[in-house]
Amino acid sequence: MEAETLRQLRGAAELATDAVGAAVGAIAEAHLAIVGQVYAPFGLLGPLAAPVRGIEHIQTAITRGVYQSILGVNALVACAVAALGGEARCSD
């Protein structure tokens, strides 16, 4: 395979992992903002506020975990692509 074609393939793979990373980050942010909006009114109900906050923390942690795991796999793929191309791009 020609060097130029290889460079373009690596570029396409990098762009795909960049896009997945950016999309997952933005969707996670929007998701967490919506979760926060749903739980916010319960914070005004005195006796319910503390247990609801606990549930919110649990849900937020699970949500973050799911998105972080996707980002982690994506980062691994990005590293693999960089390694195939002989570049160190894992620290980005």
């Binding site: 373009q8 570029g11 396409a12 990098e14 762009l15 960049d18």
Partner: peptide, 25 residues
């Protein structure tokens, strides 16, 4: 078609490709 695809991607996010020194730029 691969050149067309590359040109379309450059039109859409070409400044990003340039900044990242992406091979598609």
């Amino acid at each position: 078609w691969t050149s067309w695809a590359q040109s379309i991607v450059n039109g859409a996010v070409g400044d990003y490709l340039h900044a990242r020194q992406n091979g598609l730029g």
